[in-house]
Design a binder for these strands. Structure first.
Lengths: 125, 125
DNA sequence: TCGGGAACTAGCCTGATGGGCAGGCCGCGG
DNA sequence: CCGCGGCCTGCCCATCAGGCTAGTTCCCGA
């Protein structure tokens, strides 16, 4: 019944830097009207890091349209064969694009490539 | 003591819902130690909406400690051999845990498993 | 008109992957 | 005490993945 007037905003702190995360936690801990989310708890909003320390220009990875197609399918766990079928190309071509992706994303394998792409924001898991 | 030149944390509010954004703005506006970012200003952290359309919340897939170890390494693109080396176990055991992970995450392969885990919030890419 | 990048196809080959099967060791709880 | 689940190991085997070289079209811009 107390949900109508003051729906307390649950804030999840998703920041890698423990120092920064800790400071934010203590700063926000004293603010009434919002609450910090417990680990894994479904939050209303999330606090994410916004400064790019590594200056790795996220969306600056220059992928060809076909490579993006392959990438999204890879992110869904599709095998080369599945990629080939869904894209109407041969397995060889699928592998060709995957190899190109691995090089551009500086990954050692498809799993690594998907993780990198997700981290860089190239794809949205 | 030399390094604390009052590093005010700049927070950018990136939330579509104007009501929620406004409430957060007023709540955070009075907190000393942090400041709201001006439009377009480079912020330290950002507040993003987490309004979970994710019906599958509270996923907390029941993973054993060892399985979590293997999962995070998988997310880094580690091969079974690399997992085995870093965990001090045999390749066979690594495969054993991977197989268990695939089953629990309902994945067809390690790439799929990592993607699922990331989507479910089990791991943080 | 020509060069070059993108997309596509192909074969070959080695190592990685995943599934199945059969065990052994250990700690907790019935 | 014994079963059970977590954890670990071994072997076999079919398939997949990724690296290699090499060739084809199409289209755009110098």
């Amino acid at each position: 019944m107390s949900e109508e007037a003051s729906p307390v905003i649950v804030v999840a702190i998703e920041i890698a830097d423990p120092v920064l995360a800790d400071r934010l936690a203590s700063l926000l801990g004293g603010v009434s009207g919002l609450r910090l989310a417990a680990s894994g708890e479904a939050a209303t909003v999330a606090l994410i890091s916004r400064d790019a320390p590594t200056a790795v220009d996220a969306s600056e990875i220059d992928l060809t349209p076909r490579e993006r197609d392959v990438l999204v399918l890879m992110a869904e766990g599709a095998s080369n064969k599945a990629i080939a079928r869904q894209l109407g190309i041969s397995v060889h071509t699928a592998k060709f694009h995957v190899a190109s992706l691995l090089a551009k994303l500086d990954a050692t394998g498809r799993t690594d490539a998907v993780a990198h792409a997700a981290r860089l924001g190239v794809i949205n898991l």
